[in-house]
């Protein structure tokens, strides 16, 4: 099963496929026994994978249990949270469902504007800040001459995005305040 140091070495899709094959069936059975549908199981697992990936990639997390068990546990918590929101809280009051802090999402329109005005830059930046690629990997993926030139490009892109955010600041005061 994938660990953080392997995440960058193999394709992300391969890791996701492996997580689905190994963890989704027991999760689906668990949710089905509690009256959930296939669609609900899929949605729950998608969210759990995102949280799991972010833990591995962004915080260098390494679970004490096996990775399968950890991902399954995380997905079950997401299911409890979903039930608490959509089906009332009965029967789950003993479970701690506040396992992670939700980020305040940025307005979709602002993200769309940033994407329109510089998708390449956003791709470079997300590869570094979200996928946690090294400068060498960044240079390889985007065809920069060296790690040094990837560093400069990254800062140029960040400057560009910051300028765009500034331009739209008046429209999104709530998000930016």
């Amino acid at each position: 099963m994938t660990r953080v140091d392997e995440l960058s070495a193999r394709s992300r899709s391969e890791s996701i496929t492996e997580w689905y094959v190994k963890v989704f069936p027991p999760l689906a059975a668990y949710i089905q026994r509690r009256g959930g549908s296939l669609e609900e199981a899929k949605e729950t697992f998608q969210e759990a994978i995102v949280l799991y990936y972010e833990k591995l990639a962004l915080s260098g997390f390494s679970p004490e249990k096996t990775n399968e068990a950890y991902l399954l546990g995380l997905a079950k918590k997401r299911w409890f949270r979903y039930c608490a929101r959509n089906r009332g809280r009965e029967g789950i009051s003993h479970i701690d469902i506040a396992e992670e802090k939700e980020r305040e999402p940025i307005p979709r329109k602002l993200l769309h504007y940033l994407e329109q005005s510089g998708k390449k830059c956003l791709d470079v930046l997300q590869a570094f800040y979200y996928e946690n690629l090294t400068m060498e990997q960044l240079a390889g993926r985007f065809g920069f001459k060296s790690a040094r030139s990837a560093t400069v490009q990254k800062y140029k892109c960040l400057e560009k995005v910051r300028e765009q955010v500034k331009r739209k600041a008046m429209c999104y005061e709530d998000f930016l305040s």
């Binding site: 995102v50 940025i106 602002l110 940033l114 956003l122 930046l125 997300q126 979200y130 930016l176």
Partner: peptide
């Protein structure tokens, strides 16, 4: 503004991951 930019980048990364999933 830079802090807000990191939030936007994070969300963009997350949306890309959702698409891949």
């Amino acid at each position: 503004l830079q802090s807000a930019s990191y939030e936007a980048i994070h969300q963009y990364g997350r949306e890309k991951l959702f698409q891949e999933i």
